[in-house]
Write a protein that binds this DNA or RNA. Structure first.
Ligand SMILES: [Mn+2]
Ligand SMILES: [Mn+2]
Ligand SMILES: [Mn+2]
Ligand SMILES: [Mn+2]
Lengths: 218, 218
DNA sequence: TAAAAAATTTAGATTAATCTAAAATTTGCT
DNA sequence: AGCAAATTTTAGATTAATCTAAATTTTTTA
C-alpha cells in the first residue's frame, strides 16, 4: 500500500514517541511534534487505524501495528541514509542535513535506497550517531549512556546525542565534543550537576543540560 | 513563492510542450501529458495565472511568464542532475532513472542541488543527452539533427534522442547506438526511409522511425 | 457561412488534510 | 466519591486537487 507524505510522517513520529516513552502515544503528543491540532490527529489516527497501521482505541492513544512499524522504520532508514549522503558526499555540516532529509525520506524506490546504501558503503549510523535500519527493517541500537549518568573516572567514546537541534549541534562542534572522540569524567559538581570532562587532552566544563544530552559508549 | 508538486509539474510540462510546438499550449495537450482531465487543467491554469506564472486567456491556451519559465527550468535542472547522479554514482541504467527523477525533482534546496552539481563535476548534459540548466537558469542547447534529415556521407556523434521511452532506450543499448558514438550515413533506402549507418566499424540498418528519434551533432 | 465536431469552461461533487468551537471522556485532586 | 481540569473526540467548515456532466466557445467542413 502506498502512503502519503502525511501518513508517513505520522507513522515515523509515532514510532519515535513510542521509542522514547514506551507506552501508548497520546493524541496531544503527536499534535505537538507534528505541529498540528489534536482534532487533526484524531482524524488521521482513525484513517491509519482503518488501514491497520496503528492500534487505536478512542481516548486511549495509539501504538503501531507490525505493518505500521515496518513502514516507520523504512522512512527512518531513508532519512538517515540521506543524511549520511549529505554529510559524506555533499559536505553538508551535521546541523544542516535534517530539513532536506525530511523531504528526501519520502522518495519511494527500493532500488534507489539500496543503491545509495551500497554507494555509502553500508554505514552503521547516521551523522548524529543514530543507527541505520538494514534493508530488512532490522534496527539495532547500541547501548548509550548520557554523560550525566556517569561516575568520576568513567571513560568512553562520544557516540550519540539526545537533542538534535542545530543550536546544540553547533555548540558541540565549537567545543570539540565531536562524535567518535574519547571522553573521560574528571569531576562532577554537586551544586548544579556540571561535569568536568577530559576531551582531546583538554579539560572542559559542561553543564548538566549538555551532559544529559551527550551519549557515551562505554 | 513555494509551489506544490502539482504546480511544479504543470509548469515543467507546459515548458516542454511550448518548447516542442512554440505556440500557446492547449488545455487538452496539458491534460494529455499530465494524465488528467481538461476540466482539471482549466482550474489549475486559473490558479497559475492568478500567481502570474502563466499568461492565460480563456479558450486560447497558455504560455509561461518569465517567472513561470524560471520555475520550470529549475525543476528541469533538478530532474537532469538527479538523473546524472543515478547513472554515474548509483549505476542505474539510462532507462531506469526517469520515474525516480520525477520525484527527486521536487526536493527544494538550493544548497542541495548546487552541491550535487559540484559533486557530479558540473555535467553539461543528462544521461539522455539533454542539456542541464546552470544555477542561474540559463539553458543552452546544442544544435542536433535527426538521422532522418542527414544525407549519405554525413557523419557525426550520437548526442541526443527525441523519444525517451524505456523501450526505445533499451533498443538503442542493444543495437549499440550509444550516446557519444560516432555515426556515418552509408545509404538511405527510398522505399521506406530506412537508413544504413556505420557505427563502431559495423554497418547497421535502422528504420525511419528510429532515424527520426536519434539525434546527431555534426 | 451555417451546421457539426472538437475543444474548453463551468457547475457541482468528492477526497485528503486541515482548522475552530463545542461536546464527551478521562484524569487528578480535595 | 465527586468535581474541576485536562485531554480527546465530534461537528461543521475550508482549501487544494481532482472528477463527471452540462454549457459554451472555437474550429472545421461541407
Ligand atoms: Mn534528521
Ligand atoms: Mn540524524
Ligand atoms: Mn527524465
Ligand atoms: Mn533525461
Amino acid at each position: 500500500m502506498n502512503l502519503s507524505f502525511t501518513e508517513e510522517n505520522y507513522l515515523k513520529n509515532i514510532f519515535h514517541l513510542n521509542f522514547n516513552i514506551d507506552e501508548n502515544v497520546s493524541t496531544n503528543a503527536i499534535a505537538e511534534v507534528l505541529n498540528t491540532k489534536a482534532a487533526s490527529v484524531t482524524d488521521m489516527l482513525k484513517k491509519l487505524s482503518e488501514k491497520e497501521l496503528v492500534n487505536y482505541e478512542k481516548y486511549q492513544g495509539v501504538t503501531l501495528t507490525e505493518a505500521g512499524q515496518q513502514k516507520a522504520i523504512s522512512v527512518i532508514r531513508k532519512h538517515r541514509l540521506w543524511e549520511v549522503f549529505l554529510v559524506e558526499k555533499l559536505h553538508f555540516k551535521w546541523d544542516e542535513v535534517h530539513e532536506v532529509a525530511e523531504e528526501l525520506e519520502h522518495i519511494n524506490s527500493e532500488k534507489l535506497i539500496n543503491s545509495l546504501e551500497e554507494f555509502l558503503d553500508f554505514p552503521k549510523t547516521d551523522p548524529h550517531g543514530d543507527p541505520i535500519p538494514d534493508r530488512y527493517g532490522v534496527l539495532k541500537s547500541q547501548e548509550l549512556i548520557p554523560v550525566s549518568k556517569l561516575k568520576i573516572g568513567d571513560k568512553g567514546l562520544i557516540s550519540g546525542i539526545r537533542e538534535h537541534s542545530a543550536e546544540f549541534l553547533k555548540f558541540l562542534d565549537k567545543t570539540g565534543l565531536i562524535l567518535g572522540e574519547s571522553l573521560k569524567i574528571i569531576d562532577i559538581i554537586n551544586f548544579d550537576g556540571s561535569v568536568m570532562v577530559l576531551i582531546k587532552d583538554r579539560q572542559q566544563m559542561i553543564s548538566r543540560e549538555v551532559a544529559k544530552n551527550l551519549l557515551i559508549a562505554l
